[in-house]
């Protein structure tokens, strides 16, 4: 896996992400500054980490989405290259037009920082290959704007095409408003692009990968990606 992590001013989860990618693939990812106009040659996974790019000014992710490096990310995605955006990374992908919809202020208006449960909706994608369908994983969230919203037509399309990969659920996998902590439409935690090569998700799987610190449920996402890319190579 030859990963590149984008770094914008105000991002703060890039080192957690780098540590996880190294742990799973054995290879240090490249750190790519927002003003770059190209990705390192041979990049097969672009990761946009979490944080508060540009202080969340204007709208979360709005300014980062228009940074020079995003043209290179668009070109990478257009060739079918994999892109993963986590938390602020998901917001940036929505603002850049690589994913539909956007992330609104949490329904309860509070910043939420705790573990949540996600149901894996399908296992036949590069982003979920490390899990089983309907498996429930426990991963942390830390966001104030994670409430996914899109128009009815877009939601119907996402659902109809099986593009919702992760949904907020109860520990036993039930979809229940009580476990949808931010009020996201259809309890959406993570979606993929039409081609299935761009994933945006609010939770932080990169923070649950090391048994020395706690649960390791997040590891499957990265292990699945690593296996997928090893097979493709």
């Amino acid at each position: 896996m030859k990963a590149a992590i984008l770094v914008f001013p105000g991002i703060n989860r890039e080192r957690d992400m780098a540590r996880t990618l190294k742990l799973v693939s054995g290879r240090d990812p490249a750190m790519v500054w927002h003003a770059e106009t190209a990705l390192p040659a041979g990049t097969d996974l672009v990761v946009i980490p979490g944080g508060f790019s540009y202080g969340d000014y204007l709208r979360c992710g709005a300014i980062a989405a228009r940074a020079p490096v995003m043209d290179a990310v668009r070109a990478h995605a257009a060739k079918g290259g994999l892109v993963l955006g986590v938390c602020n990374g998901f917001q940036i992908l929505c603002e850049s037009g690589l994913l539909p919809g956007l992330l609104m202020r949490n329904a309860g208006l509070k910043f939420i920082c705790r573990d949540v449960y996600l149901r894996v909706e399908r296992a036949d994608t590069p982003f979920t290959a490390g899990y089983k369908k309907n498996q429930v994983i426990r991963v942390p969230v830390a966001h104030g704007e994670g409430n996914y919203i899109a128009d009815g037509e877009t939601i119907a399309k996402l659902e109809g095409e099986g593009r919702v990969l992760y949904r907020y659920a109860s520990p036993d996998g039930m979809i229940d408003p009580d476990w949808n902590h931010n009020g996201a439409m259809n309890a959406i935690a993570g979606i993929v692009s039409e081609r299935g090569n761009v994933l945006g998700m609010m939770p932080h799987p990169e923070n649950h990968v090391d048994a020395a610190i706690g649960p390791t449920d997040g590891r499957g996402l990265f292990a699945g990606l690593n296996d997928h890319l090893a097979k493709a190579a």
Binding site: L58, A62, E95, P100, L102, M104, I149, A150
Partner: peptide, 9 residues
């Protein structure tokens, strides 16, 4: 249209 507003919402 390019920046100040997000036309989705």
């Amino acid at each position: 249209e390019k920046l100040l507003a997000n036309m989705v919402i």
